[in-house]
Design a protein around this nucleic acid. Structure first.
Length: 399
RNA sequence: GGUGGGGUAACCAAGUGGCUAAAGGAUGCGGACUGUAAAUCCGCCGGGCUGCGCCCUUCGGGGGUUCGAAUCCCUCCCCCACCA
């Protein structure tokens, strides 16, 4: 692919693309690009929000370029200033190693491991002296810092800004100097920090990195950005069932955003999809994503199960099984409430909650609605399928 | 260092002596309906119990006043803002 074609492709779906001209030159010189992405070792769970950036990184890899993941193990020790309400716990070596490994496992669902280099920024920060740190901070001015939009706003509204927050972008930028990255990728909340990297590289007489910011993906509610703290996310590690179901729960309008950023579908293809029935389009989205993280078979299975439960009002084929022996080994008879409570399933968080479910007509045994909260069961028990609402199913056997 | 504001259900936020397990909102859950775990409507939403009634725990921690406190007093802890 020609350099210009590469640029055109790489530009797709980005929110910000700085340094296009220099990047083109470098491509024309035949250079294999070094593309950097920072990783936060305090949060090992990747969500579909991360996928937007990872997809872009993968695109670079597919074009033959080198991806570099930076584990911010040093920066973690300082604590990310944006989460300043609560001091972040300092992670131990082991925790960082563990989180990094977990992170990589997930990231490799998208990235090509063979074209990925993993680095820790303690490599260089660990040996820097205070003097080094001071000379690093000389490369930034307060005025330049205050250009940053969120700092400017906070300063104007007299919300405190700690000095360390000023330092943070410098650290991130210094990573770029050390790695001599040609491109830095990130979410659009990272734009400023990434631009600082450009400045520092320039001061170090290095070619400046291009800065590519991807939009922040909207969450399941279709309004706020996807984030764990809003609980509106889908994680790489969600089960196939949950992944499928969660996608089905997004508002119709949001699914097109997902088609665009998660499946990287072209506008033309999206337009075609929009002719489908919205439910069908959403099912296809859900199935494609599940296939990506699990398999085609799993995706087909989940789609089938979903239709069974929600369209036909039937019961799932696969459900957890419990035996009376394990639940209540001593008892020869028990109330339904006690048995369900013993399963410890999330839907049965307390006995009160289970009674509530029964009172609301949510519990079915072998398809029959139970209305009596004090219902008792006696051993031996024939195999019984219990359903609580639309999402919780279990099979109960005697032993 | 000074001044002022604040800590309420594991989220936001009312409530300043009893009728407060504590308004309202958000989230969540259930039901109905449907084109989906979309939308809409209705209901539930601290826990326990031989349940429509009783018991236990809860309003930053501790102590006190009172027949009775989230609400008053004392004390301690923590957060925030403004001024230095």
């Amino acid at each position: 692919m020609s350099p210009q074609e590469q640029i055109n492709l790489l530009k797709e779906r980005t929110e910000v693309f700085h340094g296009e001209a220099e990047l083109l030159e470098r491509l024309q010189s035949g250079k294999r690009l070094r593309v950097k992405l920072g990783v936060d070792p305090t949060r090992p769970d990747l969500t579909f929000g991360h996928m937007v950036v990872l997809n872009k990184l993968r695109q670079f890899q597919d074009l033959g370029h080198q991806a570099i993941l930076i584990i911010g193990d040093f920066t973690t020790r300082i604590g990310d200033p944006s989460g300043r309400s609560v001091a972040r716990p300092i992670l131990s070596e082991e925790e960082i190693a563990h989180n990094a490994a977990t992170y990589l496992d997930q990231a490799y669902k998208i990235l090509d491991p063979d074209k990925t280099e993993v680095r820790r920024n303690s490599e260089w920060f660990g040996e820097m002296s205070f003097l080094d740190a001071l000379s690093l901070s000389r490369q930034m001015t307060v005025a330049r810092m205050l250009e940053r939009d969120d700092f400017a706003k906070r300063y104007a509204s007299k919300t405190p800004i700690s000095l360390i927050e000023f330092l943070y972008p410098l650290l991130q930028g210094h990573d770029s100097v050390r790695l001599e990255s040609d491109v830095e990728l990130g979410g659009s909340d990272q734009i400023f920090n990434m631009l600082v990297g450009r400045n520092l590289q320039k001061d170090a007489n290095l070619p400046e990195q291009a800065v590519i910011a991807m939009p922040l993906l909207v969450g399941l509610d279709g309004e706020r950005k996807m984030s764990k703290s809003f609980d509106n996310y889908i994680a790489f590690n969600h089960s196939a069932k949950d992944m499928f179901g969660r996608i089905m729960s997004i508002p119709d309008a949001t699914m097109w955003v997902y088609y665009r950023y998660l499946l990287e579908m072209s506008d033309a293809d999206i337009a075609k999809r929009q002719e489908l029935h919205p439910m069908e389009a959403k099912k296809q989205l859900a199935a494609t994503m599940v296939a990506r993280f699990y398999s085609l078979e799993t995706a087909a299975h989940e789609r089938e199960q979903f239709e069974k439960v929600f369209s036909k009002n039937e019961v799932r084929d696969d459900m957890p099984e419990f035996t009376w022996d394990k639940l209540l080994p001593e008892a020869q008879e028990a109330t339904l409430v006690d048995l369900l409570a013993a399963t410890a399933l999330p839907a049965f968080s307390s006995k009160k909650e289970i009674r509530r479910l029964i009172e609301q007509g949510a519990i079915r045994m072998n398809g029959e609605k139970i209305t009596e909260p004090s219902m008792r069961l006696v051993r031996p028990l024939a195999e019984t399928v219990i359903q609580a609402g639309k999402r919780t199913f279990l099979k109960l056997t005697d032993a």
